[in-house]
């Protein structure tokens, strides 16, 4: 009996259906991106890479990719730096009002992104900073920061402070300790935070549509602009490339992290 009951069977079936619901549409995007038919819809008329070739020759899409990657990397560097420093303070020190500070730092995800986008756009515009790459970067930093803080904090808690105390009691200065002990131990947390920031920035469309200057497109806003006409096979191909990038990168990252951890452990 127990988990082989009728109830469990129903729950399992339901769960399978939920997974199918989650993945089927995405699978169809990937499938159709290889469709030879020129309309980018069913029926599948054959297997072809032509849409990927066309993507690679589409100057607008390549430009969008460059913009997204540069934006994502800069966002990741800045956001991770701010987030790691703040997390260190919150995990390693007894800070008065730590809970309030935490809530303050994750506030950007508690405020609806549209509202954050409007407020930042209008305020910086008032200060004379109009829609620009800089505004886009500020925006991406502020709404990726909470995710970095959450992810990095969760991982920092797992590092034992005794190791640092040991280094200091053996004569290392606080700065030496940081670079020789803390930073190597923190590396996976830092990497996870950076990866998170990059992926969220790379995916963002809600704020980006408010902040981007005319003529500048990121990959999501480019897809959005292309959708206005109709769904083309190129969009499916672009979708497939995005899926490979945003799903592939974290998986590779996780694999590399495990490798590093195994090496330092052995």
């Amino acid at each position: 009996m127990g988990r082989f009951s009728l109830g469990w069977a129903a729950v399992s079936t339901w769960a399978v259906l939920v997974y199918v619901f989650m993945f089927l549409p995405v699978a169809v995007v990937v499938l159709l991106s290889f469709n030879a038919s020129q309309f980018g819809a069913f029926p599948m008329t054959g297997f072809s890479f032509r849409w990927f070739v066309e993507l690679a020759e589409n100057e607008a899409i390549l430009r969008a990719f460059r913009t997204s990657i540069v934006l994502g990397l800069l966002t990741a560097v800045i956001s991770t730096t701010l987030g790691v420093l703040a997390s260190l303070a919150l995990v390693r020190y007894r800070v008065p009002g730590a809970n309030t500070i935490s809530t303050f730092l994750i506030a950007p995800i508690l405020v609806p992104e549209v509202v954050l986008a409007v407020a930042l756009l209008l305020f910086l515009n008032f200060l004379g900073l109009h829609k620009s790459f800089a505004l886009l970067l500020f925006g991406h930093v502020i709404f990726t920061l909470p995710f970095v803080v959450l992810v990095v904090q969760a991982r920092l808690i797992a590092i034992k402070p005794e190791l640092e105390e040991a280094a200091q009691s053996l004569g290392a200065s606080p700065i030496q300790t940081f670079f020789a002990v803390t930073l190597p131990l923190m590396a996976p947390a830092v990497a996870a935070g950076a990866l998170f920031a990059f992926t969220i920035s790379f995916d963002d469309i809600t704020g980006t549509l408010f902040w981007k200057p005319g003529g500048v497109e990121t990959v999501p806003t480019q897809i959005f602009a292309m959708l206005r006409n109709s769904i083309s096979p190129e969009i499916n191909a672009l979708g497939t490339v995005m899926i490979v990038m945003t799903v592939g990168l974290p998986l590779i990252g996780a694999a590399v992290a495990r490798r590093l951890a195994a090496r330092s452990g052995g």
């Binding site: 730096t81 701010l82 987030g83 420093l85 703040a86 260190l88 303070a89 919150l90 390693r92 020190y93 800070v95 500070i101 303050f104 730092l105 506030a107 950007p108 405020v111 509202v115 954050l116 407020a119 930042l120 209008l122 305020f123 910086l124 008032f126 500020f138 925006g139 930093v141 502020i142 920061l145 803080v149």
Partner: peptide, 22 residues
């Protein structure tokens, strides 16, 4: 800790809370 926190607090303050008040 406040030195470590200040960049992030400043960012959230200047890029979220001040704009909201604005």
């Amino acid at each position: 800790p406040w030195i470590l926190l200040s960049p992030a607090l400043t960012a959230v303050g200047l890029l979220l809370f001040v704009p909201l008040i604005f």
